[in-house]
Simulated assay, not measured.
Amino acid sequence: MLRTLFVVMSLMLIQLTAHADNQADFWQALKEGGKVVLVRHAEIDRSFGDSFLLDESCFSEKNLNELGQKQAKNIGAEFTSREIKIYKVFASPHCRTKDTAELAFGSFTVNPVLRLTKALTAEKANTNIEKTKTLISSHKEMSNLILVTHRPNIGELANIRVEPAEMVLIQPLGDGLFDVITRLKLTESN
């Protein structure tokens, strides 16, 4: 029993250390600049609304819940407190991504290529993913580019399944290429 407890405690310590290292790597790379951050929209109210719909009033769409609003504000607070330089913030036209972008970063521009791929025809989704890859790989500014989008889109781009408000850090390489550096999901204690 004592040995099992020791093994469990050791594994928890390894996980905490890995998270701390991951967080340090994430913020240090952003301080260097020239990166792209893929942000999955924050937590939504799953009991009402349509994930695929675009509704200018936002009434019929899935929208952020209270936790999601806190998550988005927490992202913004971390970027601000760490003085991360931002070139531009683009968001998908869905209300949950626009709200995440606004609560986290203030100003943003809607970019239709970031629209939820599952809401599009396969041909249009593939076109949008290719345009997004070009947008990422061609980022050459010294400050960082933020793209607030959806899990399926990030999965297609980075081959990672992300949670609400999770971020994936990308190094643009040009010529349609980029590397995934790391990922980060902020916790309440960040």
Results as ranks from 00 to 15, higher is better:
2 L>S: 11
3 R>F: 12
3 R>Q: 10
6 F>W: 10
7 V>A: 11
8 V>F: 13
9 M>P: 01
13 L>G: 10
15 Q>E: 13
17 T>A: 15
18 A>R: 11
19 H>I: 06
19 H>F: 15
20 A>H: 09
23 Q>M: 14
23 Q>F: 09
24 A>P: 03
25 D>K: 10
26 F>R: 00
28 Q>Y: 11
29 A>L: 07
31 K>S: 13
32 E>Q: 13
36 V>D: 04
37 V>Q: 01
39 V>A: 08
39 V>M: 07
40 R>G: 03
40 R>D: 08
43 E>S: 14
43 E>M: 06
46 R>L: 14
49 G>N: 05
53 L>A: 09
53 L>V: 10
54 L>K: 07
57 S>T: 13
58 C>E: 03
58 C>R: 02
58 C>P: 03
59 F>P: 04
60 S>V: 01
60 S>T: 06
61 E>V: 00
65 N>D: 12
67 L>D: 09
69 Q>L: 04
69 Q>R: 10
70 K>P: 01
73 K>H: 01
74 N>A: 13
75 I>F: 02
78 E>V: 02
79 F>R: 02
79 F>L: 05
81 S>C: 06
82 R>S: 08
84 I>D: 12
85 K>T: 10
87 Y>L: 11
87 Y>D: 15
90 F>Q: 03
94 H>Q: 12
96 R>E: 06
97 T>I: 03
97 T>N: 09
98 K>D: 10
98 K>M: 15
98 K>Y: 05
99 D>S: 09
101 A>T: 01
101 A>C: 04
101 A>V: 01
103 L>D: 07
103 L>R: 05
105 F>N: 03
107 S>Y: 08
110 V>R: 00
112 P>S: 10
115 R>V: 12
117 T>W: 08
117 T>L: 11
118 K>P: 00
121 T>I: 04
123 E>A: 12
124 K>L: 14
125 A>D: 01
126 N>C: 04
126 N>H: 10
127 T>L: 15
127 T>G: 08
127 T>Q: 15
131 K>G: 07
132 T>S: 14
137 S>A: 15
138 S>G: 07
138 S>E: 15
140 K>E: 13
140 K>P: 01
142 M>W: 10
142 M>D: 15
144 N>G: 08
145 L>Q: 05
145 L>E: 06
146 I>M: 05
147 L>V: 05
147 L>Y: 02
148 V>N: 03
148 V>A: 02
152 P>E: 06
153 N>K: 03
161 R>A: 12
165 A>L: 03
165 A>R: 00
167 M>A: 04
167 M>P: 00
168 V>Q: 00
168 V>W: 00
173 L>E: 11
174 G>H: 02
175 D>N: 13
175 D>R: 08
175 D>S: 13
175 D>E: 15
177 L>F: 08
177 L>G: 08
178 F>W: 05
180 V>R: 07
182 T>N: 08
183 R>L: 11
184 L>E: 03
188 E>C: 04
189 S>L: 14
190 N>M: 10
